[in-house]
Simulated assay, not measured.
Amino acid sequence: MKLLEQVQMVCLRRRYSPKTVQAYQRWVKEYLQFHRNKAGRWRHPRELGAAELEAFLNHLARQRRVAGSTQNQAVNAIVFLYKHVLADELAEDHLGRFAAERAKRPKVMPTVLSVDEVKRLLDAFDSANSQYGLMARLQYGGGLRRSEVVNMRVMDVDLDRQMLMVRHGKGAKDRASVLPATLIEPLKKQIAQVRTQWERDKAKGAGDAVLPDAVANKQPSAAKRLGWRYLFAARSLTEREDGNGLCRKHANASAYDRAISEAAKRAGLEKKVTSHTLRHSFATHLLESGYDIRTIQELLGHEDLSTTMIYTHVAATGPVGVRSPLDNLSV
């Protein structure tokens, strides 16, 4: 088995997300390519140690000037390679200690929309992009990540209890979030559309849902259930990854991003608006409404409270909510 395939297999065993798997494979490849260019030949990772890792990370910081988060991802990928993929071949302290020049990660305040700006944005989705409009409303209303909206299944929507179940969120953790009462009827219509589309797909031999590997292995019959269908599905059928027929995957995340950007332009918003802006706005608006930071942390699925605390810096109840002394002067 090739090295990058080994990286993929170990990542999958540890239930890493597909994006993380791809990123780790890419960084391992770049790490080895960097040293191939220097040595004029391919060198196996066992030939490379702390000094070589330092040289690669310094290259990222100095020559490529990557962001701190990008360099941290590279470090994580390469340490993962040695610690988990090559653990049986190398000594535990093979890398030893390394002191590479680290790219500084700037502290960037999140972009937050006002309540009025959110309303203008959501109202700006045209009828041709009604599915994306509902996705945006659900993302803002539940504080979801883009991937969580895109990957949501029919069974994750509990209309009776007004709850959203987020399964395998960041860090492969499940959590519950709030389902806005104003979205109950639109979601009922969306689920009805999913059912209709499901019947059409079955007639074409493409009715089986795309299942996570663990579910496909233990409960293959789940593919026949409506609950496992994506709530927001792709517009067209595509070939299954195993080559066994057609399937309908989830809505395209990039197309969703473009729809948000186009809606922001139509709404006349000057701020840079992305799908994550809706999540930032959800958290900030809850904080401004008086909800405690721990509750918001749970709804967002943050492991560390310090991650949630950043919203205290942009909420109108925080530092930016202070009345400026200039306003007390008669100018």
Rank of each mutant, 00 (worst) to 15 (best):
L164T: 06
V166G: 00
V166F: 00
V166E: 00
H168F: 01
K170R: 11
G171C: 09
K173R: 15
D174A: 00
D174V: 02
A176E: 05
A176C: 09
A176Y: 12
V178F: 11
V178D: 05
L179Y: 06
P180Y: 06
L183D: 01
L183M: 09
I184S: 02
E185L: 04
L187R: 02
K189T: 09
Q190N: 11
R195H: 14
R195I: 10
T196A: 14
W198I: 06
E199H: 11
D201K: 04
K202R: 15
A203V: 02
G205V: 13
G207E: 07
D208G: 11
D208C: 09
A209K: 01
A209E: 02
V210I: 13
V210E: 02
P212S: 05
D213E: 14
A214E: 14
V215E: 06
A216S: 14
A216M: 11
Q219P: 02
Q219H: 15
P220K: 13
P220I: 05
A222D: 13
R225V: 07
G227C: 07
W228M: 11
W228T: 10
R229G: 01
Y230P: 12
A234I: 01
E241C: 05
D242P: 01
G243I: 07
G243N: 08
L246F: 10
R248M: 05
R248I: 06
H250Y: 09
N252W: 03
N252Y: 05
A253R: 03
S254H: 14
Y256F: 15
Y256C: 02
D257N: 13
A259T: 13
